[in-house]
Design a binder for these strands. Structure first.
Length: 787
RNA sequence: GGGCGUGUAGCUCAGUGGUAGAGCGCUGCUCUCACACAGCAGAGGUCGCAGGUUCAAUUCCUGCCACGCCCACCA
């Protein structure tokens, strides 16, 4: 056994070994309880980051643990290559613009690019030691998944849960698409803050402040703050919009900021999202004055045909000419733009598809309650989200790259036509329905919208189970055992999956949910490229090894954020080294040993003591792991390994294994050593899969029947190796050892220095008497007096 | 602004209704035949702040402050 453990070489070697031997391949025929994991498919954009490494380590520890308690672990890997991030990546890698290529070409390019970069992308996940079955990686844009996603769309359609509605959405005039909130960027722009006088129908005036005077034709109401004394009088009165003349009501609403401008604001359909909120809340009329081409429409009267920007200038001029402008100052303010084209976002009513689920809030809350939450308190976050839902789920996106909504419209009767299930997946833009419409028409218009990526992501349990092929097994394995994920997407991925599962099956998607925290930089701030505080896991792995990095990741309590700490990774590396060295020592003395059972009477008290400690460690370890408390399991194990096993037990048995005078005492020591080391390796295996496997292969493999430590079973706490009374007595000896060590330390003596005489304090002289010969031998003391 | 969480030794974190623990770092000693990437020992904390409950609070309750995440808002 080499003196120094070469983690880099070993880890690379074992990755190949695991792959070649198919150690983690799921075998549906295998007996035993199935433990299935709904693994998060990482987004295919850029490389694995430290946050990934962190939460995937947590899942993997759990997966490995369940494998080692004899369960049949179904742990797949997938990539989310559907949607905006992939679009962007493909544009960047190929130096093309989506709009120049057109939809069909672009989708082709996406698929080609994905195939090319996937192996490299997945490698990082393999490298960190994930025990996923990598033989089948699913992709959320694959044909199979498109089919599945469209199938469930049709299922909901048939259940009457899908409808179309014209509704205001965030819209980019440049890209001609509705966009999601996540696609918004906030930038500083110069603009004018204009105070405009409105006449009141009842007489008098009120002055509003706005940055968007061009929306005057869209003005539908005026708002003031309910507690603003200046305007108490005018609430409920009616204002007349300058130039355009429409009469609008004046309301009071909490959302108004009295300190901003004049404290009076006009509400237009739609200037911003507040307008949108008021539109719904106060059931205001719709007055759209901007067309989808970004021009003013007939509502703008003389300004019709002008661009938004031109109209702003002209209207300000006109207002000024007529004396309505009270004040105008240049300001720099933050506005929302579409991040890819930097164009200001408008809110326009467009035809969109929705999943109706607002009526199911109570049901969703019930489902949330039925889930086993780890940690428990995370449930509140989902519940608050569900309680706060105000709109149905808008599932249509005007994007190019995505799963098409499988729908045609009859050109003549406008009826919605669905494809038969067997024809899925379909792309309605490039395919036609096979039958003519009931009205007799042969002409159809294909839906050009695609599904929101969450529509597909919310089906990951079904996507994963799809790879099983067997319908029977798919049914048996749903709900799945566990969904592991981080807390930032409780409101999205977790919620949508739960909702879909209820909508389709009235079932929970999984039994347990485990929530990981976040990785922060050493100062406790979020890592981001712009801050320049990003730590790349690949570099850390190269420097310290995957085992050491996993060790760091596993010290975060469940759900809790963890600061990146290089020191903690070094601690992981130390543990790897310590395991290596403790094994070198142990194996040196196990050279001629063949494992066999032993009579407990032959065991020495120190053997019984350490075996009892092992028994307790395993028990606590399993208790914690069953509750997903991997960090506590590891902490306990660490303490046992360093303190009890290395610092005490290995030191105590040195006289027995080195001085072979008393051969009778050797074998029990070897038995204990074998049991201990193997157990410790197994217990560490979920955390540090590489070094434990390497040591297993070097020695234990020839005695144990499994070809990998990761296929072995964890020891169950063995009553036959549990001696609580002896263990308790032996603690007296451990305490005495500490006293002798302290004496040597205080007298500046080496630990192996021989001492003549020492007095030891103890609570039980009679019992300790029994151990004095042992203490004399281990710590080289001639006379021990007890006090 | 709302929700959730966190605030314990210089650092990273455990922990408990009865006045605190680990690892790193620091100091001293020891290169002892697995390991100096080690061992042994030592110093170091009014357990975020302010109230309250209690014989007793770091631990329970209330308020505040700081930080993180999510949500809302920014005419």
């Amino acid at each position: 056994m080499a003196k120094i453990y070469n983690f880099s070489e070993t880890e690379q070697k074992l990755l190949k070994f695991w792959e070649k031997e198919k150690i983690y391949k799921f075998n549906p025929q295998k007996r035993g309880k199935i433990f299935s994991i709904d693994t998060p498919p990482p987004t295919l954009s850029g490389r694995m980051h430290l946050g990934h490494f962190f939460s995937y380590t947590h899942q993997d520890i759990i997966a490995r643990y369940h494998r080692m308690i004899g369960e049949n672990v179904f742990y797949l890997f997938g990539v989310d290559d559907n949607g905006l991030p992939t679009e962007k990546l493909v544009e960047k890698l190929n130096k093309v613009r989506l709009f120049d290529l057109g939809r069909e070409e672009f989708i082709k390019l996406c698929q080609k690019t994905i195939r090319k970069i996937l192996p490299e992308f997945v490698f990082d996940w393999k490298r960190m030691g994930l025990s996923c079955d990598f033989s089948q990686i699913y992709s959320t844009i694959s044909k199979e998944v498109q089919k599945l996603s469209q199938y469930y769309f049709i299922d909901l359609y048939k259940k009457g849960r899908i409808y179309q509605k014209e509704t205001p959405v965030l819209f980019c005039l440049e890209c001609q698409t509705a966009i999601a909130q996540a696609e918004i960027q906030e930038v500083e722009r110069k603009s004018y803050f204009v105070d405009i006088k409105f006449n009141l129908k009842e007489g008098g005036q009120v002055t509003i402040s706005t940055t968007r005077p061009e929306l005057l034709p869209s003005c539908v109401a005026i708002f003031v703050h309910p507690k603003d004394k200046r305007y108490k009088e005018i609430v409920e009165k009616t204002a007349i919009v300058p130039i355009f003349g429409q009469k609008v009501p004046i309301f009071a609403d909490e959302l108004v900021d009295p300190k901003k401008g004049t404290g009076v604001v006009m509400c237009c359909t739609f200037g911003d999202t507040t307008d949108l909120e008021w539109y719904f809340k106060h059931k205001l009329p719709l007055r759209i004055s901007i067309t989808k081409d970004g021009k003013m429409n007939e509502l703008a009267g003389p300004f019709k045909g002008l661009s938004v920007k031109q109209a702003r200038q002209s209207i300000i001029q006109e207002l000024a000419k007529k004396g309505f402008v009270k004040d105008k100052k240049e300001i720099v303010h933050i506005i929302k733009v579409h991040e890819r084209c930097q164009r200001e976002i408008e809110i326009l009513p467009t035809q969109q598809w929705f999943i109706k689920y607002l009526d199911l809030k109570e049901k969703f809350l019930e489902q949330s309650k039925k889930l086993n939450w780890y940690p428990k308190y995370m449930r509140v976050r989902l519940d608050n989200w569900i309680k706060g839902l105000r709109w149905d789920w808008c599932i249509s996106r005007q994007r190019y790259f995505g799963i098409p909504i499988p729908v045609w419209y009859c050109k003549k009767c406008k009826k919605v036509i669905l494809p038969p299930i067997k024809d899925l997946p379909v792309d309605p833009l490039h395919q036609k329905p096979k039958k003519i419409c009931k009205c007799g028409s042969k002409e159809f218009i294909g839906e050009k919208d695609v599904l929101d990526t969450w529509v597909t992501s919310s089906l990951t349990p079904q996507i994963a189970l799809l790879l099983l092929k067997s319908k029977k097994l798919q049914k048996k394995m749903f709900p799945m055992s566990l969904r592991p994920q981080a807390h930032d997407i409780i409101n999205f991925w977790l919620f949508y999956t739960l909702a879909r599962s209820y909508l389709h099956f009235k079932k929970l998607p999984w039994r347990d949910i485990m929530i990981s925290g976040f990785v922060l930089d050493p100062k406790g701030e979020k890592m981001s490229k712009s801050k320049g505080n990003v730590v790349e896991p690949q570099a850390v792995i190269e420097k310290y090894g995957a085992d050491a990095t996993r060790y760091w990741a596993s010290q975060a309590r469940l759900g809790e954020d963890l600061k990146y700490s290089e020191d903690e990774i070094k601690q992981g590396k130390r543990t790897v080294t310590k395991l290596w060295n403790a094994s070198r020592f142990s194996l040196m003395h196990l050279k001629n040993y063949t494992p066999k059972k032993i009579n407990s009477e032959d065991l020495e008290d120190e053997d019984k003591w350490i075996l009892t400690k092992l028994y307790r460690t395993i028990k606590e370890y399993r208790n914690y792991m069953d509750k997903y408390e991997y960090s506590k399991a590891k902490e306990n194990l660490d303490k046992f390994f360093w303190k009890d096993f290395c610092d005490n037990y290995l030191e105590i048995i040195k006289p027995r294994v080195y001085n072979l005078e008393d051969a009778k005492k050797l074998q029990p020591a070897q038995f204990t050593l074998y049991t201990l080391l193997l157990s410790v390796l197994k217990l560490f295996a979920p955390f540090m899969p590489f070094v434990t496997e390497e040591i297993y292969q070097m020695y234990f493999r020839k005695f144990e029947k499994e070809k990998s430590i990761h296929l072995t079973l964890l020891l169950k706490p063995d009553k036959k190796l549990y001696f609580p009374k002896t263990a308790k007595n032996f603690e007296l000896a451990i305490d005495a050892i500490a006293q002798i060590r302290k004496y040597k330390s205080e007298h500046k003596l080496p630990m192996n220095a021989e001492i003549e005489e020492i007095t030891i304090k103890t609570t039980n002289k009679t019992l300790l008497q029994k151990y004095t010969p042992l203490l004399q031998k281990v710590l080289r003391v001639k006379i021990i007096k007890l006090h």
